[in-house]
Each structure stands twice: as C-alpha cells, then as structure tokens.
Amino acid sequence: MKQTDFVEIVLPFKDKVFRLAKRLLVSREEAEDATQEILLKLWKNKTKIGDYKNVEAFSMTMTKNFCLDRLKSKQAQNLKIVHSNYTDNNTSLQKQVEAKDSVDWVSKIMEDLPEQQKIIVQLRDIEEYDFAEIAKMLDMNETAIRVNLSRARKTIREKLTNTHQHGIK
C-alpha cells in the first residue's frame, strides 16, 4: 500500500478521531499527539488494513482506548487540561458573541460528564453515527448506549437550563 492510498482511507475520519481525542483529552496538543499516534499505528499495520471490516469504526475504538489509557496512565499527570482554542471563525460575529458564552458553557458541562457519556455524546450528537455503529465501536449493547446518551443529554439540558434561567454557575 502506498502513502496516497493510505491517506485516502484515513482522510474521511481523521478529523473524527481528532475530535474524539480532543473530547477526552481536552487540550488540543494532547489530542493532536493522540491522533498522530493512532494514524501512525494504522500506518504500521497497513498491510492488515484490508482485513478490517470497518477501518473507521476500528480506528474510533482504537482512539477511545488510547485516550482512556492516556488518561489513566501516569503521564496524564502532565496533561494540559487548560485549553485556549476557541478560534472558530465559521459563525457570523454577532451570532458568535451572542452564543459564545453559552457555547462555552456546553463544552464545560461536557467536560464534567463521565467519560463513557462523553464518548457517546461525541459519537452520536457530533459525529452522528447510528447506534449500531456506536455499539460496535464501544463494544456495548444499544440499550446501554441509549441509557447513557439519555442521561448525558438530560444532564446537559438541566445544567444549561439552570444557567440560562437563573444564571447559576
């Protein structure tokens, strides 16, 4: 397999890998390192790539495991949890100013979620995978995923409602 073939396979989901890593590891640098690690692992095993039924799902599982390991490991002591990456120029300025505060809040709320729920919200609400795919990636059954997702969504909603209506932080 040549480099271009590999890039073609990897291109559609490398951003997803990165976003999942960032969801779990919070800081951009850490997420970039993790993504690089995952892609290099895939590259090293490129001869076997044809054997995987679904490279994307496989990579997402790998990412999840890698990031959780990273969080557990002692290296995680050095994790830079502070992040300063909110330079998103895609929305119009007015909208951004209006929403920025609340949008910030959503990310903070999500940081507080348990890891399992973080992953599920990430995969479902942001990457829009269907439940069967998520079940495969996380090696869980769909009911458990739905339960977790429902919990996560309700938590987000509650916290958002609180800040929105009462300004409670």
Partner: peptide
C-alpha cells in the same frame, strides 16, 4: 426552548474542527 440553542450550536460547531497537523509517515 432558547436554552437548547447553545447545545446544538456547540454540536455543529465542534463538528467543524479539523485535524491540521501533518503525520510523518516514514515510508
């Protein structure tokens, strides 16, 4: 329903984030 707005906004914005670093694939 206004308070749901930031949540969905956040979701769609997060989806735009991209991995821009180059990976050194040592051939």
């Amino acid at each position: 329903l206004e308070h749901y707005k930031p949540m969905f906004q956040y979701f769609s914005e997060s989806k735009k984030e991209q991995y821009t670093k180059d990976v050194p694939l040592n051939t």
